[in-house]
Simulated scan of single mutants.
Amino acid sequence: MTAMRGGGQFRAGLGGELLSEFLGTFVLILFGCGSVAVAVAGLPGSGRQETPFDAGNWLIIAFGWGLAVVFGVYVAGGVSGAHLNPAVTLAFAARRGFPWPKVGPYWVAQLLGAFVAAALVYALYAPAIDAFNAANNIASRDQSVPTYAIFATFPAEYFNGGWWGPLLDQIVGTAALVGLVAALIDNRNQAPLSNLAPFLIGLVVTAIGLSIGTNAGYAINPARDLGPRFFTWIAGWGDLAFPGAGPWFDNYWWIPIVGPLIGGVVGIVVYDLFIGGVLAARLARPPEEREPTPEVGRVPEKKRS
Rank of each mutant, 00 (worst) to 15 (best):
E157I: 11
W65T: 05
A176G: 05
A93R: 04
V36W: 00
G78N: 10
G45Y: 01
G45E: 13
A280D: 15
Q110Y: 03
I150R: 00
P192F: 03
A182C: 02
A149K: 00
V73E: 05
G213K: 01
F98G: 05
A281M: 06
F159A: 13
A128R: 02
P228E: 00
V181S: 05
G213R: 01
Y148D: 14
V269D: 10
G32P: 07
T51E: 12
M4V: 13
V40S: 01
L111T: 15
R224K: 04
V278R: 14
R5T: 02
L210C: 04
F98W: 07
P86N: 14
D54A: 15
V40F: 05
V296I: 10
G161Q: 06
A183M: 15
A119K: 00
A207Y: 11
A117E: 03
I201Q: 12
P292W: 03
R290L: 14
G6C: 03
G277Q: 06
A175Y: 11
P105V: 10
L120Y: 01
A123S: 13
P99K: 14
A123W: 04
A118N: 02
G236E: 10
A191H: 07
A245H: 14
I138K: 06
G15Q: 00
L200S: 09
T89H: 03
G56V: 07
Q49D: 14
Q9P: 00
E291G: 05
P292C: 03
G77D: 10
D239E: 14
A119D: 01
S305D: 13
G173F: 03
V79Y: 12
T232I: 06
P286Q: 08
A114C: 02
L28T: 06
T51K: 15
A197L: 01
A284M: 06
